[in-house]
Nucleic acid binder design. Structure first.
Length: 623
RNA sequence: GCCCCCGUAGCUCAAUGGACAGAGCAGCAGCCUUCUAAGCUGUUGGUUGUGGGUUCGAAUCCCGCCGGGGGCGCCA
């Protein structure tokens, strides 16, 4: 099979088949369906998996469900389900004799295992990979538009490792959903107003005006220091003297006055706010650049503040919200509206009694903008799990309000990140700042390069170190399921051994190295005549793993879980490293074997690169 | 009191109804004149917090309990 075969399979793949073996699976399934019909077996759903722990390659299904359905229908004749499942498996196997694409079948313990004809299927997988290249694994275009909202740090603060978890999770999810075939919009929603912001503004204006450092990150971090100091000045202490108390209260009055002026649009305060806000945003943009994240839409809290007030009026007018002003705030009694007897969504406050907005108010306005202006069908919010109630309330209110997209709003909650010493606290100066971790990562990688690859030209080292350092960090965060709390330990996060980003990058680098050498010795052009049936187990394992990639992408996108791809990527990298160790490529026994293995290495590099991209990890040429 | 999340090997984590609960780290034993040893191979280590239930089949689903974290009318 040459060009024609490659084109044929690539076309099939692009047009309809998303998970590589749908064609085979459907052919087998059709046969089993008619076998069921002929033998009066209930037409239950068949679930297909790879054959586990066989070292061989194929697809598998079980017949427990069919046997159980028979028993329920009173047709079991007293045969226990497992035995009957095995009977069905054996009979099904007989009915499938001679099916093209498979070498043999076996019925064992109620399962039917169908082994692929390796030469044919290998050919097909490798050709599909090489034909699709960077699009291998991508899903067919969907009609739905998905907005992923992530990276919502507060301005007048500095970006720490907790913000990093949010951002890498959101970016990876956005890449996965996009690659799976959905039109995807990345949205960022920085918190640029509120008391925390004003606190920094107050202290800056009063004590530090004009003293800011010029370097972007130093300046961002400097704002965080101001925040910590200011909070300290404004917090009541034990045993404080009357003079201290008076001082603190005077400061607080100044701060409140500044908030009032900001709200009233005082030009001087607004100007000061704009300028300092921009410092934070500059730092944020630079960090997103380091992470290779491109935000499509920026929403700011300050921009939805006014629109959100009008929404409250609408909700009151429609009887969804109740106005208790001036004695109380504007509320939505969600449980009551839903007729719930136990408290679950509770009562939400959507406007303060003084008429100013809350976080929830603004999220309602933002949601409406997403639905109406951007016409999104699904909206994913990557926000830490302490805000679960907030989003449960927000989505329910949207539903009461009549937005049908509300049911496709999803809060992707993740556990918060703490340090070995305890929770991060800006006030105590106990914060792992992203930029510090980044610098540390670079330094560590440079040290490893100096030790392990001293021949690497100096001018290449920094670029490689950035990719490896960021790869290690990204993978360490994404390989923990998002709903689990995490303790950030630099040594774990920046480990380069074992199940890590660098391990996977190293697999790509090793593939590059083989291909580079092949190129240099002129072997790259040698005719590839196809794969034989005598593939080694390491080759089969590698190809099998590659064939699973499209399905892994779809599952990760459906479940909103980058972790699945982190696990997948490790399995693939592991298969490649084992192959690399055990199977000679450039030293293969004969030219046709060598050409076939070179194809395999090319394909493996493609799939590894695609999988890593979805995790926000870039592989360098060498390392 | 109510709600959400978590509890799996010494440590960090996978496996969300299917076959023997898997990796990494740490430990132990091997493998670099051969495509990058950031690697490979072997090995030690588990009554899946606990008690019931549903099911042919449960780490996974349901109920109770224990332990940890978070949240609950005018913070974000």
């Amino acid at each position: 099979m040459g060009i024609i075969g490659a084109t044929f399979f690539a076309t099939v793949f692009i047009l309809g088949e998303e998970t590589m073996f749908e064609v085979e699976q459907q052919a087998v399934e059709a046969k089993i369906r008619s076998f069921f019909a002929e033998n009066d077996i209930p037409q239950v759903e068949l679930k297909w998996t790879a054959i586990p722990f066989s070292g061989e390659w194929g697809i598998s299904t079980s017949f427990f469900a069919a046997a159980a359905a028979e028993a329920k229908a009173g047709k079991s004749r007293g045969v226990p389900v497992p035995l009957r499942a095995q009977e069905i498996a054996e009979a099904a196997q007989k009915s499938l004799e001679g099916l093209p694409g498979f070498s043999r079948g076996e019925a064992v313990k109620g399962y039917l295992n169908l082994y692929f004809s390796t030469a044919q299927v290998t050919q097909r997988v490798v050709e599909s990979v090489l034909a699709a290249g960077s699009r291998f694994g991508a899903g067919n275009p969907r009609q739905e538009r998905v907005m992923v909202e992530f990276s919502q740090p507060n301005t007048h603060h500095s970006f720490h490792i907790g913000h990093y978890r949010n951002t890498i999770l959101g970016e990876s999810l956005a890449r996965i959903v996009q690659f799976a075939g959905f039109e995807t919009i990345r949205a960022s929603y920085p918190g640029d107003l509120g008391l925390g912001v004003i606190t920094v503004l107050w202290a800056y204006e009063k004590f530090y005006k004009g003293q800011e450092p010029q370097e972007i990150h130093a300046r961002g971090q400097w704002l965080l220091k101001i925040y910590a100091e200011a909070t300290n000045l404004l917090t009541a202490k034990e045993n404080e003297t009357p003079a201290e108390k008076a001082q603190r209260e005077a400061y607080d009055a100044e701060r409140r006055e500044m908030y009032r002026k900001w709200d009233a649009g005082d030009p001087y305060i607004r100007q000061l706010w704009q300028e300092t806000r921009e410092w934070s945003l500059e730092e944020l943009r630079d960090i997103l650049r380091m992470m290779d994240v491109q935000i499509d839409e920026w929403f700011f809290e300050s921009e939805v503040d006014e629109p959100s007030k009008r929404i409250v009026e609408e909700l009151i007018a429609r009887g969804i919200a109740e106005d208790e002003r001036p004695a109380g705030p504007v509320i939505v009694k969600i449980d009551e509206k839903l007729g719930l007897t136990k408290e679950k969504y509770r009562t939400a406050v959507i406007l303060r009694s003084d008429g100013t907005t809350l976080y929830l108010t603004k999220d309602l306005a933002l949601a409406r903008e997403k639905f109406e202006k951007f016409q999104v069908d699904r909206s994913v919010y990557v926000v830490d799990n302490r805000q679960s109630l907030h989003f449960m309330q927000a989505f329910k209110i949207l539903e009461l309000w009549g937005f049908k997209q509300a049911e496709k709003c999803h809060h992707l909650a993740y556990g918060f990140v703490s340090l070995p010493e305890g929770a991060m606290s800006a006030r105590r100066g106990r914060v792992a700042l992203f930029k510090e971790v980044y610098d540390e990562a670079i330094a560590r990688v440079l040290a490893v390069i100096a030790e392990k690859n001293p021949n690497m030209p100096q001018e290449e080292r920094l670029g490689v170190a950035q990719k490896i350092g960021m790869g290690a960090l990204a993978y360490s965060f994404l390989s923990v399921d998002n709903n689990k709390d995490m303790v950030f330990d630099v040594n774990d996060a920046l480990s380069f051994d074992g199940r890590t980003g660098p391990y996977l990058q190293n697999a790509v680098v090793r593939a590059n190295s083989i291909l580079r050498k092949a190129e240099a010795e002129g072997a790259a052009g040698e005719a590839f005549t196809g794969f034989g049936d005598d593939l080694t187990p390491h080759e089969i394992a590698l190809i099998e793993q590659m064939s699973r990639f499209p399905a892994a992408v779809q599952q990760a996108a459906e479940e909103y879980r980058p972790l699945l791809l982190a696990s997948y990527a490790y399995e693939l990298g592991n298969a490649f490293h084992s192959f690399y160790h055990a199977v000679p490529v450039l030293q293969a026994e004969n030219p046709s074997l060598k050409a076939a293995r070179l194809q395999l290495v090319r394909a493996a590099r493609v799939v590894l690169t695609n999988a890593l991209w979805l995790l926000g990890v870039a592989a360098p040429e060498t390392m």
